[in-house]
Design a protein around this nucleic acid. Structure first.
Ligand SMILES: [Zn+2]
Ligand SMILES: [Zn+2]
Length: 340
DNA sequence: TCTCTCGGACGCTCAATACG
DNA sequence: GTATTGAGCGTCCGAGAGAC
């Protein structure tokens, strides 16, 4: 995408430099403009706010803790058209514009901790992060590489009776596929009737879905003097500006000029992770890669930190560890901690 | 400031259980 | 047979303490 606030507007907005509108994040939120049929979008949950995108790392990961590179990216579409959940909810990295005043970002979901399959004995006994290399990084760092070996996993006990399982039925109609991708703030709102939506691609871990007009399209320009709707195929528009073939004619939206909007890099694989309502012609995820690979392990895992460790027990349905909290931690040798 | 210790949160795995 | 559950067993976060 065109990176900063510089990159905005439609191709016909060449003479806008003189006006210098305020940064997008300082402009008021407006409803979807009429040319965007609201019926095509899920209703906007309360607290939605303009979308900020953050730079990606060279490896394709999207690290909100990384220092800003070229400054904040803002969706290069006129303000008011973009409503989204932040890709990293609840956070604005230092140096980035704040969320709109009075707008409450949804709480950040807890980042999932990634474990190695087997920690080396040194790291295991120190309760420190290990890696898959031998010697591991920590052992190298502390000069104990020679003793960096895998521990031995205990065999799990067999034949333990468990009693009946509770069956938690899968998605009942009406709640289904949104679950797990819905910001907690929205999930609580019973009145927010959410239609089951199946997304063409799963978002990278930690991302919420967001909705906005495809970044490659802007509202169609007003009719010309003939009263005819112009389109990208007209002589006044460059050929590369042709409307998406799937769009009705005349197209409701215009593709952006690729020179103005060359790409959409804030997301892995060089494209935005966009999820359009099903059946919306032209609203194709910008990064819907031909091979369908996206949000895979390689780019979405293992990058997150900062586990907010305050709220004890208020886990999202996380099992509680019976028997460990009350001094019986060593039963069965499980959690075999620091046993000397 | 760095390293070590360690309580305990939480991830991963897979046997037990449920179900078609 | 496959799918799901949920506990065993593991990793490792992060606070506190001690050493330098
Ligand atoms: Zn290690
Ligand atoms: Zn090691």
């Amino acid at each position: 995408m065109a990176s900063t606030a510089e990159a905005t507007r439609s191709p016909s907005s060449n003479n806008q430099e003189q006006q210098q509108p305020p940064p997008v994040h300082q402009q008021p939120i407006a409803p979807y403009p009429p040319q965007f049929n609201p019926a095509h979008y899920p209703s906007l949950p309360p607290g939605t706010y303009p979308f900020y995108a953050y730079p990606v790392q060279p490896d394709g990961n999207h690290d909100p803790n990384a220092p800003p590179t070229t400054g904040p990216y803002l969706i290069p579409i006129p303000p008011g058209m973009v409503y989204a959940y932040a890709p990293i909810p609840g956070q604005v990295p230092p140096g980035y514009p704040p969320f709109l005043p009075g707008v409450q970002p949804p709480p950040a979901p807890r980042a999932k901790r990634k474990q190695v399959k087997m920690a080396c004995t040194n790291c295991a006994s120190a309760c420190k992060r290990c890696d898959d290399n031998r010697p591991c990084e920590r052992c190298c760092k502390y000069g104990i590489a020679d003793s960096c070996i895998d521990g031995v996993r205990k065999e799990r006990k067999k034949g333990l009776k468990r009693g009946p399982y509770k069956r938690k039925s899968k998605n009942t109609p009406g709640e289904a596929s949104f679950s797990g991708m819905t910001p907690p703030a929205q999930e609580n709102q019973a009145e927010q009737q959410v239609q089951p939506i199946s997304y063409p691609l799963p978002p990278p871990e930690g991302y919420y879905p967001y909705y906005y007009p495809h970044p490659g399209f802007v509202p169609a320009p007003p009719p010309n003097s003939d009263g005819q709707q112009t389109n990208g195929e007209s002589a006044s528009a460059p050929p590369s500006n042709a409307p998406h073939p799937s769009l009705p004619h005349p197209p409701p939206f215009f593709p952006l000029h690729p020179a103005v909007y060359p790409s959409y890099p804030p997301y892995p694989h060089g494209g935005a992770v966009a999820y359009a309502p099903p059946g919306m012609p032209g609203f194709v995820p910008a990064s819907a890669s031909p091979n369908g690979e996206q949000g895979d392990d390689a780019n979405s895992k293992g990058k997150k930190r900062a586990r907010p460790r305050e709220e004890n027990g208020a886990q999202q349905g996380k099992k509680t560890r019976a028997g460990n909290e009350n001094g019986t931690a060593e039963v069965n040798g499980a959690n075999g901690h620091h046993s000397d």
